[in-house]
Design a protein around this nucleic acid. Structure first.
Length: 265
DNA sequence: ACATTGACCTGAGAGC
DNA sequence: TGCTCTCAGGTCAATG
């Protein structure tokens, strides 16, 4: 679930449920979610504080803690947030539970433990240390920067789109959607695309993610319709009705239309 | 430097 | 019912 558009939704959920509330206490129920950070530090930083605002970069969500630093959340493959009141409603696989003074609880749920909970004092520094590239929807990713990053790469287009150090936020599903809109097969080598195709790729990347991240998600308004609901066995192309095919690219399942998406080179 | 592969985790679903 | 296998929307370390 949690690619850029999903994290945008989780940010809205966090804003609606946690901002302005005061933390009474918090607990980490499985230390493996911390990626080396200290559970004691997380608890100490949150206790008695309020969340004042949030910031999303790629698939990371940062929540500013009143007076002192940021809570870092990454949702991995299976992360989500759940606000609840009654203890009986605590979700399974809650890895971080924040208890608010007003009796509500916010759980960071992560079945497969591939997500991350941490603390940082400086968001920019955190992103730099981890080698995270510019946000896919950010203002500093203009066409020029995009071309700088992707032009001349030798590997598959899809592999490059998925690489968070190049551009942050695109995951397996939206990479397929962007490539469907662009009419390019996922295994096409990046350096086989013309300048014009790269520009189209950039425009589609922005449009797809903007539409998907909007509160009223509207992918079906895309010029070619959306391939996303047709992923999986027996899917058909929304544009030409050909059977959707599947192949592995960069180790990930990739769905594409054999008629609308051509391989170059 | 760049690209590909396996490992990290758990759970759901298919097939026997 | 229960076992085994495959797969899942992410990322890192190790390898070519």
């Amino acid at each position: 679930m949690p690619e850029l558009p999903d994290v945008a939704n989780l940010k809205r959920y966090f804003d609606a449920t946690a901002l302005g509330r005061t933390v009474a206490r918090s607990s980490i129920t499985d230390g493996r979610i911390l990626g080396g950070a200290s559970a004691e530090l997380v608890a100490r930083r949150l206790k008695g504080r309020r969340f004042e605002g949030t910031h999303r970069h790629g698939k990371f969500l940062f929540a500013s803690i009143s007076g002192d630093g940021w809570l870092v959340l990454h949702f991995g493959m299976t992360g989500e947030l759940k606000l609840y009141k009654e203890e009986a409603d605590r979700p399974r696989h809650a890895r971080l539970v924040v208890d608010f003074e007003d009796g509500f609880h916010l759980a960071f749920v992560c079945v497969r433990l591939l997500g991350l909970v941490s603390i940082t004092d400086d968001v920019e520094e955190f992103l730099q240390d981890r080698g995270v590239g510019p946000d896919a929807l950010g203002g500093d990713l203009d066409l020029e920067r995009f071309l700088d990053i992707f032009q001349g790469r030798r590997g598959a287009v899809k592999g490059a789109l998925l690489k968070q150090s190049l551009v942050a936020g695109i995951g397996n599903v939206y990479a397929d959607e962007i490539l469907f809109q662009t009419g390019v097969r996922p295994d096409t080598k990046m350096n086989r695309l013309s300048g014009g195709e790269l520009e189209t790729l950039y425009r589609n990347l922005r449009v797809v993610l903007e539409k998907a991240a909007a509160p009223d998600e509207s992918l079906d308004e895309l010029p070619r319709g959306s391939i996303l609901p047709h992923r999986g066995a027996d899917g058909t192309c929304p544009r030409c009705s050909a059977g959707i095919r599947r192949m592995k690219v960069a180790g990930r399942s990739s769905y594409y239309c054999p008629k609308c998406q051509r391989k170059r080179g």
